[in-house]
Design a binder for these strands. Structure first.
Lengths: 219, 219
DNA sequence: AAAGTGGATATTGGATCCAATTTCGACTAG
DNA sequence: CTAGTCGAAATTGGATCCAATATCCACTTT
């Protein structure tokens, strides 16, 4: 029995999926553009088969839209969509926090604080990709602590849907520093087990980002 | 230009998907059983390719679980899962009703009443499949009236997840008649635009079915 | 007998090839 | 000049074939 020493060579449709996600959040695959399967396959050095399977996954997540015999196009995200996603997050994240907070162990809290530090560190390095992944890890440590897999899954879908815009949000240094303060506030509430304060902190956190992003969208 | 006169011959991976959904809700593909792609493909008279694409969709919806190089197995649904699904439905259906009720037009209401009549009719014929589809149509006429596509989509996923058990629920004639009463109560609330009453009716509706189904699961 | 090892078999992953459909442009008719 | 039609090219859908991995079983070793 050998331990997993190196990053396992994944099953390659996963590689395609990961790369396509990157293309989507960086905007290299811009909303509205049709996806040419063969071109994409060539670019990634694989055949069309794994590309098509990855597209089916992305379709399920709402990142691309599909019409039979017409193919896939990158989904557009309107301001209304954005607002809707954030409203659904409001409802579901509140539930996650209600359930999770009473269950939080000191170990959980420690992990969450470490994750917050990661966000800060990535922010100081101005590494946008790292900030977004660290930020996501931070929040989902809390959400997952609720122990409700279906809820976590749904929240992940909602976060995924607006990932494109989170990088935009974190591009502004002011936003990066504000996020740190908001994380600290949330952590303070978690430490004392104050559900209401935690929900409020998370709500304020969301409100700021949805405001910033929808401004960016409308202008 | 010819009008679409007959049910268009769909793109065949859709056919596979539809048939697999049927196999899942009827239990012919029972929870926990591994899915042999080739056997399934032979049975459906197609190659493995469309089967694999359909499986990716079902994986995204949580109906099957996937491990690289190990394949797909039909997902198990525990009582905890069931309770979680219903809790999420509670949160999201309440929101759908809050938004939809003030927007309901007389036309909407008429359609909803017709759908309720369909449920009753199918119930009298004791046609389980028709009852479940009519029941679903009834509820989603209301949910969709909210005009929130992402919410509708998420609710559909949650309903899909427990579709297996809804047929079980409707198998009992007592449940079928109770459902009709509950639908009438909901409609009465919709008619007078009473959001609170509508939410309450929907909640009672859910509570009865989750109770019946979880009893069936534990015994 | 228990545990580990090697290899045959079954199953999934991916590539290539062919069929079906759509798209787009040239051409014709009005 | 516009509308319509036909057909070639592009694109997706599906089938078949080969490769990679996992599973299972006989066999060896202690």
């Amino acid at each position: 029995m050998t331990a997993a020493l190196f990053t396992k060579p994944p099953t390659a449709q996963e590689a395609v999926l990961a790369e396509m996600r990157r293309l989507l959040v960086t905007g290299e695959l811009a909303p509205g553009t049709p996806i040419r399967q063969e071109a994409l396959a060539d670019r990634l050095g694989v055949s069309r088969v794994p590309v098509r399977e990855a597209l089916k996954v992305l379709e399920g997540e709402g990142h691309v839209e599909y019409s039979p015999h017409r193919g896939y196009v990158v989904a557009e995200l309107s301001v209304e969509d954005l607002v809707e996603v954030y409203r659904l997050r409001e409802l579901l994240e509140a539930e996650a926090i209600r359930v999770a907070v009473p269950k939080l162990t000191p170990t959980d809290l420690e992990a969450i604080e470490l994750a917050a530090a990661d966000v800060t560190a990535a922010g100081l390095r101005a590494d946008l990709a790292d900030v977004t992944t660290a930020n996501r890890a931070f929040h989902f440590l809390l959400f997952d602590a609720a122990g409700l897999p279906r809820l976590s899954r749904t929240l992940r879908q909602l976060w995924d849907a607006t990932d494109v815009y989170r990088s935009v949000y974190f591009a502004a240094p002011a936003n990066r520093s504000r996020v740190n303060d908001e994380h600290d506030e949330l952590i303070a509430a978690l430490r004392v087990g104050d559900v209401r304060a935690a929900i409020a902190a998370q709500a304020a956190h969301r409100a700021h980002s949805v405001e910033a992003v929808s401004n960016a969208l409308t202008t």
